[in-house]
Amino acid sequence: MGRSVSTEFEIDLGLSIALTEAGAWIIRADDREFRLEEINDFYRAWLLLEQPFSDVRAALDQIACNANAATPFPFAKLIGSALKAQSRQWTDRAMVWVPFLSTAEKASLKGLLSDVRDSKWASQKIRQLARKYVNEIERGDQDA
């Protein structure tokens, strides 16, 4: 792709999140780069969900600050990607991160959270948590 990268956050051996000089979030896997734009692009970054949200946010915010990035890392898309996959393991991990999102970011996940709430594949605990978040979003919609 030929874009130089300002800083990186290593997720795993040979796998890192970075920001290009143009301000685009990418994932680097060995010698390849993949843009993180659409929700479906984020599956390569799911390993982030294995770490504490505060640690990941601090690292990625630092990268954005160092690069004077216009856009912070899109955590809602990462979480949404894991929810969309309908994988119990990754949904469980993603749901731990939902409380850290802004109200607007949570609202952007309403459809996916509703899918989890109504699913047969998610655990009862996760379905109840999804129901709680959907209810919070809907209460927020009524207040607006």
Rank of each mutant, 00 (worst) to 15 (best):
M1I: 04
M1Q: 05
R3H: 11
R3V: 05
S6D: 09
E10H: 09
E10K: 12
I11H: 07
D12G: 02
L13Q: 11
L15T: 08
I17N: 08
E21D: 12
W25D: 09
I27G: 06
R28T: 10
D31F: 10
E33C: 04
L36P: 08
E38M: 13
E38F: 08
I39T: 15
N40F: 13
F42W: 13
Y43N: 13
R44E: 12
W46I: 00
W46T: 03
W46D: 05
L47P: 04
L47S: 13
L49Y: 06
E50Q: 14
P52D: 13
F53R: 14
F53Y: 15
S54K: 13
R57P: 02
D61A: 14
D61P: 06
D61I: 00
Q62R: 14
I63T: 04
N66V: 08
A67P: 01
A69H: 07
T71P: 00
P72Y: 09
P74L: 12
P74K: 14
A76K: 08
A76L: 01
A76T: 09
K77C: 05
L78E: 10
I79Y: 05
I79M: 05
S81E: 06
S81V: 08
A82P: 03
L83C: 09
K84T: 02
A85D: 15
Q86P: 08
S87P: 04
S87T: 08
S87V: 04
W90D: 06
R93G: 01
A94P: 05
A94T: 07
W97G: 00
W97P: 04
F100D: 13
L101P: 02
A104F: 01
K106R: 15
K106N: 04
A107S: 10
A107F: 01
G111M: 11
L112I: 03
S114P: 00
V116I: 11
V116L: 06
R117H: 10
R117T: 01
D118E: 15
D118N: 10
D118G: 05
S119D: 02
K120S: 08
W121L: 00
W121M: 03
A122G: 03
S123M: 04
S123T: 15
Q124F: 09
Q124E: 14
K125G: 04
R127Y: 03
Q128N: 12
A130E: 04
A130V: 05
R131A: 15
R131V: 00
R131W: 06
R131N: 11
Y133N: 06
Y133H: 14
V134T: 10
E136A: 07
I137H: 11
I137F: 11
I137K: 07
E138M: 07
E138R: 07
R139H: 15
D141R: 14
Q142N: 08
D143R: 14
D143T: 13
